[in-house]
């Protein structure tokens, strides 16, 4: 069952992202929003761990949250607006928010 994992905590303050990457299913995807978008900052361990998975993993990012933090998106991350967020939540069987 394909799951969309939604993260909003910064990867530099806790281990949610690394835990999420460890339990990801082969058809799962990640949506980064809020401070979790800092995971896309170039040359960070968080970005490298995501990049290492992008062969099979789709990484989405909430556009306005990345823009608000002036984060340049790597080519393996796809930005979505709120309409896109809804479309993703319909597309995936479950949405798991890492509260």
């Amino acid at each position: 069952m394909a799951t969309l994992h939604v993260l909003s905590n910064s990867p530099f303050t806790d281990s949610r992202l690394s835990s999420c990457l460890r339990v990801l299913g082969s058809e799962d995807a990640i949506l980064l929003c809020g401070d979790a978008t800092y995971a896309l900052r170039a040359d960070t361990a968080a970005a490298q761990s995501l990049n290492a998975k992008t062969g099979s993993l789709k990484v989405f990012v909430l556009d306005e949250d990345a823009t608000a933090r002036h984060i340049a998106l790597p080519d393996w991350a796809q930005s979505v607006d709120y309409a896109g967020f809804v479309t993703l939540s319909v597309h995936y069987d479950k949405v798991n928010t890492w509260l």
């Binding site: 905590n9 949405v95 928010t97």
Partner: peptide, 9 residues
């Protein structure tokens, strides 16, 4: 069909 949770920062 879907439960979507929001919380945290």
């Amino acid at each position: 069909d879907r439960l979507i949770c929001f919380g945290g920062p």
